[in-house]
Design a protein around this nucleic acid. Sequence first.
DNA 1: TCGTGTGAACACGTTCACAGCC
DNA 2: GGCTGTGAACGTGTTCACACGA
Lengths: 257, 257
Amino acid sequence: MSLRPDTGAPSGAEADGERPVRPVPEATVSRLAVYLRVLGELREQGVETVSSEELAGASGVNSAKLRKDLSYLGSYGVRGVGYDVTSLQGRLQGELGMDHRQSVGLVGVGNLGQALAGYAGFAGRGFPVSALFDVEPDLVGIEINGIRVRHVREIPEVCAAHGVTIGMIATPGPAAQNVCDLLVEGGVQSILNFAPVLLQVPDDVEVRKVDLSVELQVLAFHVARRHIAGDVAIPADTPDGAAGATGETNGSVVSPR
Amino acid sequence: MSLRPDTGAPSGAEADGERPVRPVPEATVSRLAVYLRVLGELREQGVETVSSEELAGASGVNSAKLRKDLSYLGSYGVRGVGYDVTSLQGRLQGELGMDHRQSVGLVGVGNLGQALAGYAGFAGRGFPVSALFDVEPDLVGIEINGIRVRHVREIPEVCAAHGVTIGMIATPGPAAQNVCDLLVEGGVQSILNFAPVLLQVPDDVEVRKVDLSVELQVLAFHVARRHIAGDVAIPADTPDGAAGATGETNGSVVSPR
DNA sequence: TCGTGTGAACACGTTCACAGCC
DNA sequence: GGCTGTGAACGTGTTCACACGA
């Protein structure tokens, strides 16, 4: 990997001092992850150079935002040309911590947990699940993807030993806080929480929450909004020959542009 | 601009045609869903009245934000007292579209899909999964939770017939766009997408994306940042040591936030 | 010429602090 | 006194538009 390919960095190389933390906005970080995936796809297709317009389009953002996002990492593009796919990919990987070894510990191998444990996208993207935990006697001891499920009480020890950097909590709500405490005890400072509860953690621990029923409710809100706003105002475009709908259901089918 | 949210009539405020401005900010909507869950828990505990301070604390936000959020719905609190749990719950349910019948169609009953299909939280929160789809011959025809898995090609017909309001896509990436088109054809205007691809949809269709590897990468970013900031703080002193009774709040690493 | 990089304008979201009502 | 509801201040994030370099 090539870090700091050249020059003394125009706007602030961090030597090693009291240089304040990098000013990468939180909102930008999430998008960098998206760009990184798209870059991977582009490279597989053999694309060597990409413009901000193209990369932005493929990532679902506008090009100004993309350029601004990348500008926080320094100048890695070439004016009049675009970005070199490979080197930009490397730069993003570095920024997103992919040059460290990441290792995921997953707690709760029930319904959702087993799906997460088997999700190929994690290992494929550099986040191998390396430890599994549960309390259920039927589950403790079994192997999933070659990894043995251990008892929750072993979390601190195993996480420390395996160097787990990220904990994922996929337990029922009531168990989540206890599990969280054990992860923190094991030195885990980043947690992805699927349980529908608010976790209490020390200040130096980062928690992100994925709340599926919140997502659904936001969508339901928009459903309701449309019913009020749209009502009779069904979009103009020809309904076209959609499958026979039941009468009442307003099949406001709109043909894609 | 103008257009006051206006504390108009509780039901059916303005019903006139064009409504260019969104009265309730997007960021607020997500939080309303959280408040709603917490209110449900409070009611189960027999709590009848709650202050903004308490409700905010239980929801993980500060009280000013909560009051501002609720103010978009009108005045439902009592000064000097707080909010009536039951009536606020009812108000939020209405605002979030829970007085309409919601019905979820889930496409892709593989690893993740089966977990989602079996997730009790959905039905329990008013989002029953009422249709399942896949292409895999081994899966089409089986029953999950009493619902038969149908072939993807039946999506338009079945969604229209069942009045599916929300589609969930849990297929592999390459299949997602096609599935999405079928959902739209069936009249579905709200989609929750778990596939790591950018969906192309008409303007009147709302898509929310849950991207687990993005979540992990954001966490990884913070891991890396801590390593830079905290420097020597992470490396566990000889793991050899006893299962150290770590204080819960180890104040060792201080991130300069 | 073309596309990046970036200050400046703008829009959105959060926090403050206090008026108003119980 | 206590707590809600809300304008105004503030901060964060997004978009614009153009100078600059290949």
